[in-house]
């Protein structure tokens, strides 16, 4: 964990990085993105009034 220089590719480390990305990082980013999207609309409605008929 402590080496700072570019480490040699390691199968175990690549697998761990893949699982972390696929099941933690990207889902977190996706939820954050959807949340920000919802917040943006909420903020807009607070300024412009509630939305009209759909």
């Amino acid at each position: 964990m402590m080496q700072v220089a570019a480490a040699a590719p390691n199968k175990w480390r690549e697998m761990r990085a893949f699982v972390a990305l696929a099941f933690l990082v990207w889902p977190f980013i996706a939820v954050a993105f959807v949340g920000a999207y919802g917040f943006a609309f909420w903020s807009y409605f607070m300024l412009a009034g509630p939305p009209g008929p759909q």
Binding site: P9, K11, E14, A17, F18
Partner: peptide
């Protein structure tokens, strides 16, 4: 400089594109 960061932003050496896209 973080080894995990480097691993995440470098093409995979051990896993095929087929496996990674399936995952």
């Amino acid at each position: 400089g973080n080894v995990w960061f480097q691993t995440m932003f470098r093409p995979s050496v051990h896993f095929s594109l087929a496996f990674l896209t399936l995952g």
